[in-house]
Amino acid sequence: MSTHHHHDHDHDHHDHAHPTQPDIDGPLTYHQKLEIAIRELMIEKGILSADEVRRTVEAMDARSPAGGAKVVARAWNDPAYKQLLMSDPSKALNQVGVEVGLYKLVVVENTDKVHNLVVCTLCSCYPRAVLGLPPDWYKSRAYRSRAVREPRQVMAEFGLEVPDDTTVRVHDSTADMRYLVLPKRPKGTEGWSEEKLAAIVTRDTMIGVAEARAS
């Protein structure tokens, strides 16, 4: 998952380091000890098992932006599927074997006239079923604070300039919906296969801080 994750971001032409956090490298932090303590207490009480924790982590690793990309690519190539995706996202996800998850998904479409951007100002709600775990910046104070008030500036910091004749719609996921941006299909991709299209649908395009590019 992580490999894909990173390649995704590289497509967006952000040149920055990807620090890794080794699990146990040097003394444990207080919170790492707390995780061990809680997990062991839960296991001792028979509330959960080590195996369940492992399997849940595996399921988590299996969810990645590849799920969202698959859905977007299908929608680009198949107008009937796109219609289904907009009107009944759960059904559309089921059709291509992408897990629906716990929350209701709302798909918002980017067009020549409208550009959508997703944020969660209160915490970090994110369409994990289709995008996996959120990147750090999505959960940062800077993004959560500014995306609602200065969306165009924030997008510009990601290298995306949205023209003034395009309406910017920000979506603050405050409650029970999760938002997936259906990016605009770039020119020069006519006749591409779904697989080839999926490869240019990056995570950031599905959050709204980037546009899909043909190369």
Binding site: H9, H18, Q21, V57, S140
Partner: peptide
Amino acid sequence: VEPTEHDYAPW
């Protein structure tokens, strides 16, 4: 907004 991310650690 700094476009930071990291591989989530096992813990």
